[in-house]
Structures are given as C-alpha cells and as structure tokens.
C-alpha cells in the first residue's frame, strides 16, 4: 500500500500543452485570435478562449467539429484572480466519441455571450451559472434565477458567500432559527470559507 514519496511524485499525472491538437488547430484557423491556450490532462483537452467569441467558438465546434452535444456549462470562482471567473463549457462529439472543455475568463460584472441559441441544452445551465455565480449571459432568452428564488440576494457558489448563510428575509421563525445562523453559525470556531 505505502509508497515512498519519490515514487508518489513520479506517479503524479501532469498536464501537457495541446496547442497542436487538431481541434485546437481547426479553431485557430477558423477564428484567429480566439484561442488563448490549450492543454491536455488525463486525456482531456482544455481550450481557453477569448470571452467575447465564445458563442462563435461553440458554433464552430458544433458545425465544423461535430461537437453537437453540450454536456454542461458551469463556472469557477478564483476569488483574487483578475479576471475573477472562469466559465467552463463541456462539449461532446458523437462521431469522435470525445469531449472537449472550453474555458473563458470573465471579470465580475462582465457579460459573457450566451450559447443558448447554439445549444438548447445550455439554457438552464447558464441560468444556474447566473444564479450561483452572478455571471450574466448576454443574449440569453430567459436569464432568471433557477435554484434560488426570485429576489434572493447574492450568489451562493461565490467564494465570498458566507457558509453560514445570509439574511434572506425568508426565515419563518427568526427568533428560534436566526438567519445567517446556518449549521456553523453559532460555533465560535467555525470555519469561514471565503
């Protein structure tokens, strides 16, 4: 079971540059100046592209490279990085039987072009991303909150959203269960994530 540290280090997988990958090449050829970088990790290709051209990238991948199935849209909050967010898209191609991950960086408050017109499946995913991160998608047909309710303040999956909750005004018995008094609210040693 036990391994020496050296062995363990050796076994660690590493990411490699994938700028030469045919899909990336094709993207670069069709849409110059969009691809920022590309890497491959554990057999998965990740392409970072310019935020403004993401809808065109999606269209190109769908039409030219046959990535017809939009698996997922989500985001990552890097808190202190500038720009703050990464919006992450996963696409799948039935003919290639392969996935591609496309990322673009977006600052807080910036709008990302919606791909809901390219992939119907992205509709709710983008709504969820808006709800959870507050990343707004321009051109989205119906950008409302989806998992939290209309009028909820804040975006829960941002790293600075307090784990113990916020005052939403929705508590039914605030004397007994105060708002923002979530699972770790009363604990003096509570872990604050943000």
């Amino acid at each position: 079971m036990e391994k020496s540290p050296a062995e363990e280090k050796k076994a660690r997988p590493e990411a490699t540059d994938a700028s030469g990958h045919p899909w990336v090449e094709s993207l670069r050829a069709a849409l110059p100046d969009t691809v920022v970088s590309a890497k491959s990790f554990a057999g998965q290709i990740t392409v970072v592209v310019q935020k403004d051209s993401i809808a065109r990238v999606a269209r190109h991948l769908k039409d030219a490279e046959d990535f017809r199935y939009c698996v997922d849209v989500t985001a990552v909050d890097w808190k202190t990085r500038v720009p703050r967010f990464d919006v992450v898209y996963h696409f799948y191609s039935f003919s290639k039987n392969a996935r591609i991950r496309v990322k673009c960086a977006a600052a807080d408050g910036e709008e990302v072009p919606s791909i809901a017109s390219v992939f119907l499946a992205a509709n709710w995913c983008e709504r969820e991303t808006w709800d959870m991160f507050g990343i707004s998608f321009s051109g989205h047909p119906d950008l409302r909150r989806i998992l939290t309710w209309e009028g909820f303040k804040g975006h829960p999956l941002r790293k600075d959203f307090p784990l113990e909750g916020i005052d939403t005004g929705a508590a039914i018995y605030p004397e007994e269960w105060p708002e923002g008094g979530g699972p770790s609210g009363k604990d003096p040693n509570r872990k604050v994530v943000s």
């Binding site: 997988p13 990790f41 554990a42 998965q44 990740t46 991950r101």
Partner: peptide, 9 residues
C-alpha cells in the same frame, strides 16, 4: 491531487 481539473461521468 495536483492543481488540475478533470471531468468524469
């Protein structure tokens, strides 16, 4: 793990 990202389904 290493500082990387991965998707599996």
């Amino acid at each position: 793990p290493v500082a990387e990202e991965v998707y599996a389904s």
